[in-house]
């Protein structure tokens, strides 16, 4: 997983959603298609919610290990 590429893409996408497509093209080789889909989905939800996207863990505390 290319952590830096994911972070840069999210950062750019949040700062300027119009440049996301250009960014996606330049980072395409560093990310796999699943990662790109997740990033696009989250950024789209973030835009629709007006910047208040949130992690939606299952409704169970079982996930709160750690």
């Amino acid at each position: 997983m290319n952590y830096a590429a994911i972070a840069n893409l999210v950062h750019e996408g949040v700062k300027n959603s119009k440049s996301l497509l250009t960014q996606l093209k330049s980072e395409e080789k560093k990310l796999n298609s699943n990662e790109i889909t997740v990033i696009q989905n989250v950024l789209a939800r973030n835009q629709v919610s007006g910047g208040t996207v949130a992690i939606e863990p299952p409704i169970t505390p079982l996930l709160y290990w750690g």
């Binding site: 999210v10 997740v38 989250v42 973030n46 949130a54």
Partner: peptide, 19 residues
């Protein structure tokens, strides 16, 4: 946190690991 996308970034990483 709001302007630089802290929450979307953590959400992305969360969902990638879920996958």
């Amino acid at each position: 946190a709001l302007e630089e996308g802290v929450v979307p970034y953590c959400t992305v990483m969360y969902e990638i690991y879920c996958q």
